[in-house]
Nucleic acid binder design. Structure first.
Lengths: 205, 205
DNA sequence: CAAATTAATGACCAATGGGTTATTAATTTG
DNA sequence: CAAATTAATAACCCATTGGTCATTAATTTG
């Protein structure tokens, strides 16, 4: 006979977060029921409150975790890179593009945008920790290229946004409209076209 | 002594929609209270139900109105244009860029994205009516440029997305993070950098 | 100006769901 | 193996809010 439940203090937090990610991503913050999160995690609602203070705390814990690390990994590649800036841009954009195409964490940006008005603190956190860092990476690469005479004299702040914009587009497409595509859109080809066009457009004359 | 209320059947619908736009944009669908919408429109909740069947119907009416027209206006310029494709792309992108920077309707895309999972019908409508048309405009311009030998041989479907991506970025920035900018970001300069880079990147060799 | 019409109200209902807590039982301790 | 501990439950509370409807009064009609 199966036990009614087991004590698994260590595993619960991660399981609850995982379940909550699915529900929030699917329904949005307000429409998500904690009973459903609990069911999805194989526990009951009361248990959630042993690990998180409130629904809001659960949401914030989610939105703050795990994407920053990805960014740091990319950043680490920057310092020691010795090739051309074009190669560096290719490397980074391919890494991010791959992440955008495959990770299930990409639902987070859409969540944050959707709830930014209700959670100003959270929006500010993202603006500072995630977006600023992401843009910083591209600003660094562009500036490097301009300084080394590889790219034409372009404003790094603006150019950085041009770099990420298509990646953002992929993320939003995947999490919003992809399911209505009868033939799946080829995101990788978009990244490649983006790289060709962008690098040609940036090249010093 | 002021009357307690007036009968204004014709004006109500628009007023309710306007009020609802503000609330939905600010709070999201689920977190929006119809009492607040009513208060913002200067009426009571019951009155809303004289004009709309349900909260969902109100949301859908909003999300389906008014942005398609903007697109048609742009489309009309396409057919008779006789200048270079680069000029045409500049014209269209500046028009859309201006709209993205100034219109209060740009909260709609974010709303739709946020609620797409809860309103699949609506997402499909947007995908078909708004996005497909928007991409169609750019696909047309790119194809025109390639056929006339002005642009290099690039896939119009992919290139079209590269065109809009920065506009989308402006929309999302404005509606999510702009309020945390101590110095406002110069979106117009982004559009200009985008145009320079993109046109250089697309030019036939 | 009286009667008929209907736009608008506001009190009300019922369901939903966030959060609490007394109780249970799995696990640990001595 | 008995006692103590605590992870987990599940029944419960109650504030919120979408939606309804009987009533009111602004407006129109004849």
């Amino acid at each position: 006979m199966a036990k009614r439940w087991q004590r698994r203090k260590e595993a619960r937090t991660a399981e609850i977060l995982e379940a909550a990610l699915g529900q929030f991503a699917q329904k949005g913050f307000a429409a998500t029921k904690l009973d459903d999160v609990a069911k999805s995690a194989g526990i009951t609602k009361g248990t959630i409150y042993l690990y998180f203070d409130s629904k809001q705390a659960l949401f914030e814990a989610l939105a703050q975790g795990s994407i920053g690390a990805q960014m740091d990994a990319v950043k680490a590649q920057l310092e020691n890179f010795s090739g051309s800036s074009a190669e560096l841009l290719k490397l980074v954009l391919n890494t991010m593009g791959h992440f955008a195409q495959t990770s299930d964490r990409v639902v987070l940006p859409r969540m944050v945008m959707a709830e930014a008005a209700n959670f100003p603190k959270l929006a500010q956190f993202w603006r500072r920790e995630i977006i600023a860092r992401g843009l910083g990476i591209f600003t660094f690469i562009i500036r490097r290229g301009v300084e080394r005479g590889e790219f034409r004299a372009v404003d790094p702040e603006h150019a950085a946004r041009l770099c990420v914009a298509p990646v953002l587009m992929i993320v939003l497409w995947r999490t919003t409209f992809a399911r209505f595509d009868e033939t799946p859109y080829d995101h990788q080809a978009l990244i490649e076209t983006h790289l060709e066009t962008l690098l040609t457009g940036l090249k010093a004359p």
